[in-house]
Every structure is written in C-alpha cells, then in structure tokens.
Amino acid sequence: MRPLLFFLLSLFISTTFSSCGETERDQDLETLTAREVALSYHVFDDALREVHRFAMRDSLLNDTGIVQRFNSCIEDAYVSDTVAVFPLYLTINYGGDTNICDDGFNRFGVIRAAFSGKYLNKSTVVTVTFDEYYKDQFRIDGTVILTNLGLNSDGYMMFDWEVIDGHITGINTNITWEGEHEKTWVAGRSFESQSNVDDDIFHIEGISKGRNSRGNTFENEITNPYVADYSCQWFTAGTSSLDIPNLEARRLNFGLTTECDNLLIERRNNTYLEVEIPY
C-alpha cells in the first residue's frame, strides 16, 4: 500500500510542479521575436540614414561643397567646427516631442555623430550615440560604429556597421540588440547624385543577436542582403534566418523590392506568418 501511495504522490508532484508543456508564449506564436528583430534593424538603420543625409550634404563632412539642412523636423543641426579639422562632431537635435518629419515619422531628442575624417574617405570611423532620442514611440540607446572600408572589387563603397549595447524601449518593449554587419552602397553614389540621398541603395549583410521583450535570446543571420532603398523608409527586400533557442527555425523575408511597407513574412516550414513592424 505504501509504495502505491508514494507512487501516486510522486506522480501528483511531478505533474503539478514539474510539467514541461510549452505555452504559446514559449513557442513565440505571436511572431514577437521577428517583429522585434525587424524593429531593431529599422530604428538603427534609420538613425544611420539621418546621419548619412546630413553628411552627404555638408561640405565639412563630405566633398560635395553643399551645406544644407535636410529635414523640417530638425530643430538644430550643426558640426562642431567650421574648418575641416577632424575629429568633427555632428549634432542633430530634433527638439521636443511634436516633430513630425518629412517622411511622416516622429523623431525627438538628439543624435550625435563623431567623424574621424571625411565621410567618404576610406578608414573614416563614424561613432553615433543617442541622447534621449526617440523614433516614434521607441527610445533608442546604444553606440553605432560605422567604418568606411573603401571600395570593393566591384567599385562599390563598403562600410562596416557595428551596433554595441543597442537598447530599444517603449510600451511593452524592451529589446537588447547588437549586430555586426557590412553595408554596400550599390546605387546612388555618383558625383552628380551625391546630394540626392533618396536614390541611394545599400545592401546589408551580417549577423545580429539580442534578447526580446520577454527575455528570450535570438540570433538573426542575413542570408540574402537586406535592401535599404532610401526612397523607402523600410527594407524592401532581403531574407534572414532567425534562431531562437529550442524553437523551430524561422526565415524572415522583406519582399521583392517592389513594395514599400512595414511588413515582412516569417516562414516556419510550410507556415507563413505576417509580421508588422511597429512605429
């Protein structure tokens, strides 16, 4: 009798306190991780675009001979000196929280960028940091290091793009993110079009990793370059493999370059799920 009682008691304890059934959250059925990976890429890429837009139009940071500000939502933007003695420090101040930019996004706070040399010169390092900076509902923190690698064998300018201690916070959002990527400038770099940033297209390849808002770790490896076409605020193409420990592998796909939207597809074998990047 006693062994049976012990067995039943053990069974009760094991099923009550030690069962290991996965919940929906554990399985990431809501595509949270994909959404937050895509959001991370979007906000840090967006910050770099803002720096790029300024650098390409400023004679101190570039060689175009053009000095102009570029976005109506910017309260103040300036370079630390009036002569090209490096390092130079760029400050883009979006001011308070009611600044709708030309692209429809809301930005406020400050982006700072330290240039070790002219933006388009090989080996120049641009270090980007944030000061109470928000893009729409998300606060962005971290350090972005962009290193000009010069021209590749196809004549395209390349950059190393590193994100260190990236952090995105907002309502129900708390993402840590870091990445090591290469950006290849595949279109829009001709001298004639240098000041026209909207025709610039970059291909982004590399790996990022981090922790989503529920604390799960992830790693994302780009398998076909993400396409950052500056005529569109979102990535227009590219695929990646997204790994979340103990869960089925996912593949992310931003599309065919024909669409400009905040949507992507997450594929798990023969299941396709829509993912919408919040903003």
Partner: peptide, 13 residues
C-alpha cells in the same frame, strides 16, 4: 496585397 507578394518572394526565392 503586399503580404501575398512577400509570400511569393519567400516561396520562390
């Protein structure tokens, strides 16, 4: 239908 286009992209890639 953007999501369908992305489905097409993902499937035929």
């Amino acid at each position: 239908l953007p999501v369908d286009l992305k489905f097409f992209s993902e499937t035929t890639k």
